[in-house]
Design a binder for these strands. Structure first.
Lengths: 221, 221
DNA sequence: ATCGCTAATGGACGATCGTCCATTAAATAT
DNA sequence: ATATTTAATGGACGATCGTCCATTAGCGAT
């Protein structure tokens, strides 16, 4: 319960226990993310990280050059974790732009992506991005990639509506949906127990349906 | 540009410069908020706070009992600042629930409430609430009061629609609007320069209009 | 003018921060 | 078997953290 367990499996996996720099790097990054999720980035110190990883003190400076660069690497890894899972879920349903958007919404609000750990880490990196340029590089990645994916999908749908609004409609829908999803993450962070994923998906779809009345019809009247 | 200026006006205002505990408390709280907004809550130390306030080191322990309790007091003060301004703006337009909701939206997205300083402080307190119970008490106040105000307004409007959906409609509208506004604050925090308040208001109103087609009509088709 | 109260001061304190490096040890090359 | 290379160790280091308190100084009461 203290600090052992999560990091010992790398020695049980394939016996790369020692003398494996890549394994050590990953262990440090995972320990960093877990620590941030548990006690916040303010209380995440070098001592806590190496204690959780079960490694020695000098590893951080050896492999990353310092704490800030470890944090930046952790932010990058966290972003990649998110997109690996997102892409895996969205790729399965690409029969049309409407399905892509629905898949993104459901994926972003799924427990695999939006959980207590990820929302805390996401929030911590967001706040730290103001003073840590290394983190800032990767903390906004989530938005940019989501923005591109959604924007291209919305543009296809918007073509079926009025010509004069095409550009503005796709732009507003992208921005609104992104903001809505961001707000959902914040809301989940504040009170995860009272949060309902079903209600969240329903509300997001209602918002989109308001912009595109001919699409995104919901089952309930 | 360094640390003087902002806090010297309390001596120029009414000459309560010294020997005034209330003035000292306020100066410490303001210095705390300004420091958090400028360098983040992680780097906000006792030394930085008292340096900015131009006071002595022992004041924090004397008036608040410690740094954590000063942070909690700052969170409370920040929440009150927000509601004082919000109430002032909403009270001016209370001709109906529709106007109340519109006023809340425009107020929450106005520069007086949603600016770089407030979004950074709000974000910092949100993150610190996970580990600081004193902050947690006041950090979610914004949501709760907004929720009550909006929910009662939406209930009145929802009565004009289908009976079966009245309760769910008002609840979803409140939740959705709150989430949307939270997301707007996050979006403003990430890129304040590219943020457009007009677009934000427009999108929020479009979302509400999607739920209540007979209300919240926008000028543009 | 003197006393009493308390706001205010600023240095001391131990703890902890992040960085760094001399040393150890494991894996590879000779 | 020996030498070389380098991942890994863990303690030392100065800086800074937040807390605390002996002391100073301003203000009202007597």
């Amino acid at each position: 319960m203290k600090t052992s367990g999560a990091n010992l499996d790398n020695s049980a996996a394939k016996r790369p226990a020692r003398r494996n720099p890549e394994s050590s790097k990953r262990a440090l990054i995972m320990a960093t993310l877990d620590t941030i999720a548990e006690i916040g980035i303010t209380d995440t110190t070098v001592s806590k990280i190496i204690q959780r990883a079960g490694l020695s003190r000098g590893m951080i400076h050896l492999h990353f050059g310092g704490k800030n660069q470890l944090l930046a690497a952790a932010a990058k890894s966290f972003g990649q974790e998110y997109f690996d899972e997102l892409d895996h879920r969205v790729q399965q349903a690409t029969s049309g732009p409407e399905d892509v958007i629905t898949a993104v919404i459901q994926a972003d609000l799924s427990e695999a992506l939006m959980n207590e750990r990820s929302t805390r880490i996401w929030h911590a990196f967001r706040g730290a991005a103001n003073s840590n340029d290394g983190i800032a590089l990767y903390s906004s990645t989530r938005d940019k990639r989501l923005r591109d994916t959604l924007h291209s999908a919305f543009k296809k749908i918007a073509q079926e509506y009025g010509e004069a609004e095409n550009s503005a409609l796709a732009r507003d829908a992208t921005f609104g949906l992104l903001v809505l999803l961001e707000g959902m993450w914040v809301d989940y962070l504040t009170n995860a127990n009272a949060f309902s994923r079903e209600v969240a998906v329903s509300i997001v779809l209602r918002f989109i349906a308001g912009l595109f009345p001919n699409h995104f019809q919901q089952s309930q009247s």
